[in-house]
Design a binder for these strands. Structure first.
Length: 420
RNA sequence: GUGGCCAUAGUUCAGUCGGUUAGAACGCCAGGUUGUGGCCCUGGAGGUCGUGGGUUCAAAUCCCACUGGUCACCCCA
C-alpha cells in the first residue's frame, strides 16, 4: 500500500467543513480590516529563504525541503510566508504606486521536522503583512487583526506576549553586552546554547532549559539598551493596545526564530494546545525589504497556524462548526422510475437545491436508510403511481409530515415548502 | 537528530504464565409479507494479528531487527 509522506496529512471530508469555516472567517476578517489577498507559489529559489530567514536559523539549516530541479536549480518549498510575499512585493513593484500596502495569505508551508501534536511537515498558515508604515499603529493593527480572527472563531483562551528586540542602531550594543556576559558564563550553559552563542547569542535567552534559565537570569535586559526611537515605538504600541482593552504581558526574553525581526516581536499562545502552544507569532521587520533588494520599506506582519487554530477551537467548543445538510433525497420505488428521478434531481440541482439519490439500484428500504444517514431534510419517493398521477408526496424527515405536490417537480412550488 | 509508548476486522478495542476453525461493540450489507427512514429482531460480508527473521511439536502471544504511528525534547505556526 502506498501511504502519504510522513507528516503530511489528508484533510478528509469530515474535517473540510471546519477548514472552510476557518478559512472563510479569515477571509472575512481580513476584508473587514481591508487587507488584500496575495497568492504566491509554493516553490521559491532557495537563496530567498537563506537571505531572509537567516542561514544559521534552525528553519534554514535543518528543516527546509530543498532540492535540485531538472535544470539543476536549487529550489525550496516555502517554510514560511513572509519571504515570498516580500519577494513578490519587490518584484511586482507593489509598493511603488501607493505609500502603504496591506496583504494577507492562506497557504501550505513545509518544514522537515519530526511530527508531533500540533506540528506537521506540511502545515497551513494564514498571515498578514503591512508595508510602508513605521507607525506603532501598524503593529497594533496587525495584532488586532490577529485577535479579531481568534474572537470570530469563538476562541477566548489566548494570551498576547510582547517584546521589543531593538533595531539596527541599538541591538548591536545589546548583542555585544549579552555576548560578553554569556562568554563568561559559558560553562554553565547547555551544549546547544553554547553553540547558539557563536551564531545568534540572543536566542540563548529564549532557551527553556532550566540550566540556561538559571545561568542567564541576571543578564541585562534589552530595555536597558533600546534607543529612544525603539523605546518610544514600544511605549506607543502598548498605549494603543491598552486603549482598545487588549491585554498583553511583556516577556523580555521573547526572541523569535527568524532573524529578520526588528523592534516589535509578539506571540499569541493558547493554554489548550499542549507542547506546541504558539497560535501565531510575528513582528516588525523594517530591514528585510531592502535586504532582499527592494527600496527601504518598513514592514510588520504575523503568521498563524490553521491546524493549531483547529485544535484550539475543538478544545474550547466542539459545537461551533455546523454540518452542512442535504436538503432533499429522491428515492425511486421501482427501476422504471430511475430516469424520472434523475431528471427531477437534475432540475432541482440547477435551481440551487442540494439533492441526492441512489446510485446503487438499491431497494426502497435501503434508499430510505440512505436518506436518513445523509440527514436529508426532505424525502420524495417516485414510482409508476406518481408518474401516472402526476402528483408526489414530499415528506419532512423530522416532523414526519407530508404534503402533495405536482410531478414533474415545480421549483416554485417546492421552494414554498422547503424554505419555510 | 534524540527518547518514551503503541501496532489484532472499516473504527474503537478484548484476547499474552504459547495450545483447535482469532472475538466484542459500533459501522457496513440484506431481510423482517408485496411502496416510506431512525428503534428493535434475524442473518451476512469483512482480519495472511504492521513487515522480516528467530525460539518451539505448536507463536497474535516469547526474543531480535525493521517499518509505521503517536507523544515528548529541540525548534516553531
Amino acid at each position: 500500500m502506498i501511504s502519504s509522506i510522513k507528516g503530511m496529512k489528508d484533510i478528509l471530508p469530515a474535517e473540510t467543513e471546519s477548514w472552510q469555516f476557518i478559512e472563510n472567517t479569515i477571509h472575512n476578517i481580513c476584508q473587514q480590516f481591508h487587507f488584500k489577498e496575495i497568492r504566491t507559489p509554493l516553490l521559491e529559489q532557495t537563496s530567498l529563504f537563506k537571505r531572509s530567514i537567516g542561514e544559521e536559523t534552525d528553519i534554514v539549516s535543518k528543516e527546509m525541503y530543498t532540492f535540485f530541479d531538472r535544470s539543476n536549480d536549487s529550489i525550496t518549498l516555502k517554510p514560511e510566508a513572509t519571504a515570498s510575499i516580500v519577494r513578490s512585493f519587490i518584484q511586482n513593484h507593489i509598493g511603488e504606486d501607493q505609500p502603504s500596502t496591506k496583504l494577507y495569505q492562506i497557504s501550505a508551508m513545509f518544514r522537515q521536522e519530526r511530527p508531533q501534536a500540533g506540528r506537521l511537515r506540511q502545515f497551513h498558515q494564514y498571515d498578514a503583512e503591512i508595508f510602508g508604515s513605521t507607525e506603532p499603529s501598524a503593529d497594533a493593527e496587525i495584532i488586532l487583526l490577529n485577535s479579531a480572527i481568534f474572537k470570530n472563531l469563538g476562541l477566548t483562551n489566548f494570551k498576547l506576549i510582547l517584546n521589543s528586540v531593538g533595531c539596527e542602531n541599538c541591538r548591536p550594543n545589546y548583542r555585544d553586552a549579552i555576548l560578553k556576559n554569556l562568554t563568561s558564563l559559558k560553562n554553565k550553559l547547555t551544549p546547544q546554547s553554547r553553540e547558539r552563542l557563536e551564531k545568534n547569542p540572543l536566542r540563548v535567552l529564549d532557551s527553556k532549559e532550566a540550566e540556561d534559565i538559571e545561568a542567564t537570569k541576571n543578564l541585562p535586559l534589552i530595555f536597558e539598551f533600546l534607543c529612544d526611537s525603539c523605546k518610544t515605538h514600544f511605549d506607543e504600541l502598548q498605549n494603543i493596545l491598552k486603549s482598545v482593552n487588549l491585554n498583553f504581558t511583556i516577556n523580555n526574553r521573547l526572541v523569535r526564530g527568524l532573524d529578520y525581526y526588528t523592534k516589535t516581536a509578539f506571540e499569541f499562545i493558547s493554554e489548550n494546545l499542549g507542547s506546541q502552544d504558539a497560535l501565531s507569532g510575528g513582528g516588525r521587520y523594517d530591514l528585510l525589504v531592502s535586504q532582499l533588494g527592494g527600496k527601504k520599506t518598513p514592514a510588520v506582519g504575523f503568521a498563524g497556524g490553521i491546524e493549531r487554530l483547529l485544535m484550539a477551537i475543538k478544545k474550547e467548543n466542539q459545537n461551533l462548526i455546523n454540518n452542512k445538510t442535504l436538503k432533499l433525497f429522491i428515492a425511486s420505488a421501482d427501476t422504471s422510475s430511475k430516469n424520472i428521478v434523475f431528471q427531477n434531481a437534475n432540475n432541482l440541482r440547477n435551481a440551487g437545491i442540494s439533492t441526492d439519490f441512489d446510485l446503487l439500484n438499491r431497494s426502497l428500504k435501503s434508499q430510505m436508510r440512505e436518506a436518513d444517514r445523509q440527514n436529508a431534510e426532505y424525502l420524495i419517493v417516485i414510482g409508476e403511481k406518481e408518474i401516472s398521477e402526476e402528483k408526489v408526496l414530499i415528506k419532512n424527515m423530522q416532523t414526519r409530515t407530508s404534503s402533495l405536490i405536482n410531478l414533474p417537480i415545480n421549483i416554485e412550488e417546492i421552494n414554498l415548502i422547503i424554505n419555510k
